Amino acid sequence: MNKAPLIQQRIPVTSPALYLSGIQALNLRENGIDDPTGDWHFVNAFFTYADQPQDVPLYGAGGAWIDTHESLGARGIRDLSAIVCKQELVAPEGPVWVANFYRAIADIVALDARAQRSPGMASVSTINQWLDTPEEIAHLKQDYLTPLAAQFQGDSAAWMARFLEEVRYR
């Protein structure tokens, strides 16, 4: 067990094309504004051990994870500087661009599709824990996952097609 103290991961400069997503975005929400409930792990999302310093990973063009701009553009990416400040997170001057809840889920699904990982980080069961209503699931599927599927080819496209068939409210 690591006994080093926890420190905040550095939040790099962001933009609408290079933004926070994944678990970090799921932990920054605008009190019901396009952000349903979720499974919060704030410390895991923004802190690390002092002897293992690291930056918060970014999504998008040139990011550490995956770029979904090809299929989703800037859909669901918004400035959450005020929320970041309210959470007392240290961030660079200027806007802190963060995926909304639906875009964060889509970005995680994109990672799963690329790796063809089932069940993935955003399994249908997990999505049903994060989203509370049939309407939220339908919004995710229609406005985020279906356009996202067009981004993939080959085995990843086949994985995405199977996944889309499974996504439903349970």
Score class of each variant (00 low, 15 high):
98 V>D: 02
105 I>L: 10
94 G>A: 06
117 R>Q: 14
29 R>W: 05
139 H>V: 07
48 T>R: 08
119 P>N: 09
127 I>N: 03
55 D>P: 04
29 R>I: 14
167 V>C: 01
82 A>L: 12
156 S>T: 13
38 G>I: 11
17 A>L: 11
7 I>A: 02
157 A>P: 04
76 G>K: 01
144 Y>W: 07
28 L>G: 02
15 S>L: 00
56 V>T: 08
67 D>I: 05
45 A>P: 03
113 A>C: 10
85 C>P: 05
30 E>Y: 06
3 K>C: 08
40 W>I: 15
153 Q>F: 03
170 R>P: 09
160 M>D: 09
161 A>D: 15
100 N>M: 05
23 I>T: 12
44 N>D: 15
52 Q>S: 12
84 V>H: 00
85 C>F: 07
60 G>W: 00
108 I>Q: 04
36 P>A: 14
47 F>R: 15
151 Q>M: 11
123 S>R: 09
129 Q>R: 15
13 V>S: 08
89 L>A: 05
127 I>A: 03
117 R>H: 11
81 S>P: 02
134 P>Y: 01
13 V>T: 13
151 Q>V: 08
136 E>W: 00
113 A>N: 11
69 H>F: 05
15 S>K: 00
1 M>I: 15
39 D>C: 09
106 A>H: 03
125 S>V: 13
141 K>R: 14
16 P>H: 04
166 E>N: 15
3 K>H: 11
69 H>C: 08
69 H>M: 11
69 H>V: 07
132 D>L: 08
77 I>E: 01
24 Q>R: 10
9 Q>P: 03
113 A>R: 06
90 V>E: 11
66 I>Y: 01
32 G>P: 04
77 I>Q: 01
99 A>T: 15
168 R>G: 11
128 N>T: 15
146 T>S: 02
63 G>F: 00
159 W>N: 05
148 L>F: 02
106 A>M: 07
109 V>A: 02
18 L>W: 00
61 A>Q: 14
143 D>Y: 00
44 N>W: 06
79 D>V: 06
56 V>I: 07
16 P>I: 07
158 A>V: 12
47 F>L: 12
151 Q>R: 06
28 L>C: 05
50 A>W: 10
116 Q>L: 05
38 G>H: 10
100 N>G: 13
69 H>S: 14
168 R>L: 04
161 A>P: 11
155 D>C: 05
84 V>K: 00
8 Q>P: 03
105 I>V: 12
93 E>A: 15
11 I>Y: 01
136 E>M: 01
71 S>W: 03
62 G>C: 08
6 L>Y: 08
1 M>E: 15
108 I>W: 00
161 A>H: 14
8 Q>E: 08
101 F>S: 13
105 I>F: 01
160 M>V: 14
4 A>I: 10
37 T>C: 06
32 G>K: 05
137 I>A: 00
135 E>D: 12
32 G>L: 04
103 R>P: 04
44 N>L: 09
93 E>V: 13
20 L>D: 05
